[in-house]
Structures are given as C-alpha cells and as structure tokens.
Design a binder for these strands. Structure first.
Lengths: 267, 267
DNA sequence: CGTTATGTTGATGGCCGTCAAGAGTGGTGG
DNA sequence: CCACCACTCTTGACGGCCATCAACATAACG
C-alpha cells in the first residue's frame, strides 16, 4: 500500500524525507507489557533517547504500557493525573466539558507527544483524555519518573524537552485560534497538522485526520458547518483534496501557507 | 545560539542579551541591590519552596537577578531561550509577530510565573518577552538548573510544578479563546485574571490591569474596540467598575462568573 | 499647558453561528 | 454480498455579532 506511487507531492522543499517512515504498526501487535523501549520505533524521539542500555532497563521499570485503546475510549478523566502519558501509536485528544453542553478541545496528540501535562486547570473540573482511534499509550508514574530523572543525566534533559514540547503545543493552539477569519484558522491548522505528522514520521501531504469535523471545529473555536464549508472552499480552489472522511491531501502547500498567514521567508 | 551580537539603538529597546551579559559581574558581588531567595517574598511559591538553607545557597549560585525592566522593555527576543525567567515583581507578556503586522499575545505573566518555557514555536520566528510595567526578573540558566535539580530532591518537584503551571496557563488561554461571544471571553478573562492575582497574593477584586486594551484584545482574539465596548457594557450592567485606565473593580463576581459560563457548582 | 498615545463611542458591512435539510459514509447483520 | 441504519458531513438560507473605519474623549507626559 504505497500511496506515494500515484502522485508526487508538489513540494518545492527538497528537505522532506520520503514516506519511508510509516506509522508504527502496533495495531497488529498488541504489545501489552512486552515491548520495551529498546525496540520501540519511537525511542529516538522519546524519553530513552540517547540513553545507554543499562539505563534503558531502569526506565523499563517505571514505564507501564497500557492495553490498546479504541475510538472514544477514555484514557484519563479528572485533573492532574499522577501519570504522564506518552502516546506510542494512534492519536489522542484532551478536552474539558463546558457548562453549556459542548466540549472545548484543548489539544490533539500524535505519537511521541506527552498528554496529561498542564491539565490542572481551575474552574473546569471535567477534563478528559481519550483516543480518537485505536491507540497505544505508555503511562509513567510522575513521582518515580522525576526520581529516576535525577539519577540519569540524559533522561533529565529529554524529559524537559518532552514537557516543553507539550507546552509549545498549547501555545501553537493559541496562535491558531488567534487567527481572525475561519479560512486562516483552518489553513493554519492543516499546515500545522502536516508539520506534526512529518515530525512523527508520517505522511505529511496525504494527511490522516483521525478527528471528526466537529472536533476540528472545537479545536479551532468555530462551528462545525463553518469548518466544513471552509475545507470545501479550499478544495474548490485546488489547494487541498478531500479523500474520504478522514483523509485530506495537500495539493498546494505554498498557497496553504499563504492563507495561514505564515511568514514564509525562513527555511 | 549567541544572539548577543546584535546591537540595538539605546532608545527603549535595551534587550535581554546585553542586560544578561553583565550578570557574571554581579556574581562576584552579593547581588548588588537585589534580593536573594532566602528573603524573597515570593519564595514560598517559587523554586526554593521547602528547601533547606544550604540548598538555598546552591540555588543562589545559579540564579541571576536581572536589572529592573521598564515598560515595553524587551526581556528576551528569539526562540528557545537558554534561560528560564521567573518574574519577581511587575508583569510580562509573551508575544509573536504576525506577518500581517499585528502581534499575537501568547500570555501574560504575574509574579511567581515562569516565562520562556514552551516558546519554541515553529513557523513563527518573532517571539518576544517584554515587561508591561516596571518589573524585576530572575534568570536561571536552564542547563545548570536541570543539573542542580538532580542533586536537590525538593527542587526537582518544585521545578516540575512551575513548568506545569506555565503549561496550564497556555491551556487556560485556549479555554478563554474558545468562548464564542466577546462577552464570555472578556468575562472569563477578568475572572481568570482575578484568580491569578489572588494566587499571587494581590488584590483580587480591585484588579490591576497592567496591559493596554489592545493587548487584552490581542490576548482574547478580539478587536480593541470590541473589548472596550464589552467592558463598557459590563460596567453599565453594574458588574464591574472601571477605575482609571489600568484599574477595574469587580462589583458582582457571581454574575461575572455566570457570563464567563463557568460551572459554578464546585466550591 | 500642549502634545501624543490610548481609550471610547458611533455607523456599517461582511463573516460566521444557527437552524434546517439533504447527501454521504461506515458499520452491522442478514 | 447486499441492504439497512445511524452517524457524520455537506450545503443552503438567514440573522446577529463583531471587525473595520472614523471621530471624539481622555489620560499620560514633559
């Protein structure tokens, strides 16, 4: 299923790696309790990055791979979990309930991302983390992780990097919502999602959108219909191509970035 | 990333690098005119919380109190600072430049807050942290802080708490911007600002708003005029009382919370 | 006291939220 | 394999809210 065979990406940037890095196929092999970090494909970008093998063992002692989650299954509910969750495959969303019925989306998570950090929000008790598709997650007890990080030098820095990434994600979210018109928000969201997929080693121009339209809308602070309409217009303009309900192909990344009002002058 | 080479005109743009480079000199002298952690008013909520006195000394070795900043003076410019900034007094704002001229506000900081964490945003090079009023800041070199936190147990946890707070702040921001109508956004902003002032030990009903209306608007994703109009309406309804240009008194916290669409059923 | 930046208020048009209905998709069971 | 159904997505119409432009008022500063 080499989807890159039919069409070449219209990229002007040669630095992008081809789609040789595919999604971790943890779907087929439930690794519950078996797969150690040392053979995890995410390892280079995850906590054990650049750790010696004996240190791998110490990590393994505190990392709990959880059973696979199905769509809309809750990973965590409440505030300030005692665990940090690292997504291994699939995708998650973090939400809070609103008084008016709806739910505000606080963020989407891709493999390699940390969830459960910075969710101690006041006045909003109904926080949740749940899977948007079949996903596998590692849970790490926070206290023990902090202790362990004190004994392993590389782990300390790597942990900091992951936490900073999580914080950056929220700030990116603010930037996206700061766009005033719906077109700029949707364009920036797609642009950012593409970038994050690329970071995770996934296909960056043939986007997999695990969330529903309504969830995108909630993320962007728009109505579902507006989101749908905007995507339709992007398609009519030849900028993207909707491929099924969960797929979207970026045809013109340059115009997409222009609509997203991105400063394009930096590599 | 030694960006300190850029020389700025001496107008009002005295940037962070020149100010920081004089810190080694201050290391020889016992923090001329500045307060060490052991007698800092913020200490209980800051890094040295619950630390023994000898550990205070270790901390003191890596904390650099910076010269006071004036209004609109830049504390840091660029991406991913090598320092973590802890605000001691005054207030800061974190912004990024937009292509279309305006600037998106990423966050406001109050005494005890950490700035400079999670600002490694892609595609937006023009990040800045600057003072909204006369402020004093402690800078801590990140690498040395992480090293030190490995040797002091309480520091590790306290550092984590501060970083999580910073991340929570961004998520609160998302929640505020997620409100659809302007009135709910302004109300939630005021409610949240009041809460944060209270956390910082400041007056929670006689609000000090160090930022301009336009900065509030940028924070909320609204136009300046809409923000002003909305505040005026809140005043006309007897919910708040504008006291001068930088002051606002909350007259009816309950109705304010109602407008903010906050779940009021939890103590 | 004059000047400038900031804040407020008014008028108007366009965008988007809302309600509504239809089209499409995916999953299930026969 | 096919039919069916529930859910999601899309498209249309309309009204209200807010961004924009503009003018004025007021605070801040020397």
């Amino acid at each position: 299923m080499h989807t890159s065979g039919t069409r070449k990406p219209p990229s002007a940037e040669a630095g992008y790696p081809p789609a040789c890095l595919r999604a971790p196929d943890a779907d087929n092999k439930p690794h519950a309790g078996t797969t150690p970090c040392s053979i995890c494909r995410l390892s280079p970008g995850c906590l054990p990055a650049q750790l010696a093998l004996p240190d791998h063992e110490k990590l393994r002692a505190i990392i709990r791979p959880l059973p696979a989650l199905g769509r809309d299954q809750t990973l965590f509910e409440g505030r300030s979990p005692r665990d940090l969750f690292i997504l291994r495959s699939g995708s998650l969303k973090t939400t809070v309930h609103q008084e008016n019925g709806g739910q505000q989306i606080l963020g989407f998570h891709l493999p390699g991302n940390v969830a459960g950090f910075g969710t101690g929000i006041e006045d909003f008790p109904g926080g949740r983390i749940l899977a948007m598709e079949r996903s596998s997650v590692c849970a790490i007890n926070l206290d023990r992780l902090l202790e362990t990080a004190q004994r392993i030098d590389g782990l300390q820095k790597q942990l900091y990097r992951l936490l900073e990434d999580a914080s950056t994600l929220a700030q990116q979210h603010v930037l996206i919502m700061g766009r005033h018109d719906a077109e700029a928000r949707v364009a920036l969201f797609l642009h950012d999602w593409s970038r994050r997929l690329r970071m995770a080693g996934l296909n960056w121009y043939d986007l997999h959108l695990p969330m529903r339209r309504g969830e995108i809308a909630g993320f962007l602070g728009l109505a579902t219909e507006t989101t749908s309409r905007t995507i339709s217009r992007l398609q009519a303009d030849g900028i993207v191509n909707v491929t099924g309900r969960r797929g979207l192909r970026i045809l013109d990344p340059v115009r997409l970035a222009t609509l997203a009002e991105i400063d394009a002058q930096h590599a």
